[in-house]
Design a protein around this nucleic acid. Structure first.
Lengths: 199, 199
DNA sequence: GGCGGCATGTAAGTTGTTACATGATTAA
DNA sequence: TTAATCATGTAACAACTTACATGCCGCC
């Protein structure tokens, strides 16, 4: 009973307006990248099930349904999903339920913990990759933030999302600061051999 | 091919000395609590398999094998596992492989993102729980740190572990700082209704 | 005599990933 | 014409959790 959150990610995203499965995936990859992920193998079956449960409705955009299209008979097929009132209820009910225990798994820390078994260069390389990917995350965060500010927000609904971005920024900052420290430690450890023999 | 890390957690932990399955579980729960978790359902079958592969050896401590025991025939049964040279090789080889992409899933942020669908009190309650659990994590981190300093470390091998603890402290600090900010935001959002009507 | 901690294990079920299959459209 | 992106979907597999079953030991 730990999983099954895919459902609420979908429902939540659709409160912003109707989307296709592909678009949902893209939003998750771009916006949620630093705290969530979903695969098509989860997404599509769940969309089907949610529709079956009446929490979503579908509007199948067929090739020729686009009026005034330059090239008739064109236009990619796509299934757009929209949330129903029942779907909104399900989302709200989930929102009020307590957050389940988070099960984080950071392989980097596992390797750091056991790294006395390996030369310092190994961990330095891992940390380097870590730093790179978290620096890249900052850029994605900025891009998302920019995107958000370009969308008008009369009722101040963007505040919650801004908080999420803030989380990304703050945790990333901490991760990078730590990585720098750890790098310094490793280069120092590297110069000191097993047991210092004073000549 | 994403998982299968359980193996290396076991192998790594056993570099510190022989342990029973139960002790391994306990160490993971106490020391790795903020970045890793394992269940018995993973642990025991993996121990069996690793032994089968020759990466571990077992020493079954049977009730009457304790010499000089006050009460003969007593002593709990426990299977102690020790790492072999092949096991060490496997661990070292894994250490040198690149860290796989981390798949974090923070339900709290998901809820924060969609929280405009719920009253501010909901998120405030979730954040409260979040703060509590991360404050508790600090205590566990301190306990572990203390435990570590009590163990003599002639060759300076504890440095790597200290870095892991440092990660825990720094990220926790960031999480708590963020939570405070988010709390402040929510109480302010709470006082402002949908659209401010100036009388 | 019962509870909590020590200790080992399994079976069933759920969740999630990967790889594959398919095919249209657009731009180089 | 070929690669990239859009787009939907499934089957097989791997990983992981939960709940259960079992039993000893020491303490209150």
């Amino acid at each position: 009973m730990a999983g099954g959150k895919t459902r609420y990610v979908i429902l939540g995203l659709l409160t912003e307006g109707p989307l296709s499965g592909y678009e949902i995936k893209r939003r998750i990859d771009l916006r949620f990248q630093f705290f969530w992920s979903e695969s098509y193998g989860q997404l599509y079956p769940e969309l089907k099930q949610l529709t079956h449960l009446g929490l979503l409705t579908t509007t199948d955009t067929l090739p020729d349904t686009l009026p005034g299209s330059r090239n008739p008979g064109s236009g990619r097929r796509s299934v757009r999903y929209a949330i129903t009132e029942a779907g909104r209820d399900a989302l709200r009910s989930w929102l009020s339920e307590p957050v389940e225990k988070e099960g984080i798994r950071l392989e980097l820390l596992l390797k750091m913990y056991f790294s006395r078994e390996a030369p310092p260069e190994t961990m330095q390389a891992h940390l380097h990759t870590f730093v790179q990917s978290h620096r890249a995350q900052f850029l994605l965060l900025d891009r998302f933030h920019e995107e958000l500010t370009r969308i008008p927000d009369p009722d101040g609904n963007h505040g919650d999302i801004l908080q999420v971005i803030e989380f990304g920024r703050m945790s990333n900052t901490a991760y990078l600061a730590w990585a720098e420290q750890a790098m310094a430690y490793l280069s120092q450890r590297g110069t000191i051999p097993q047991h210092s023999t004073i000549p």
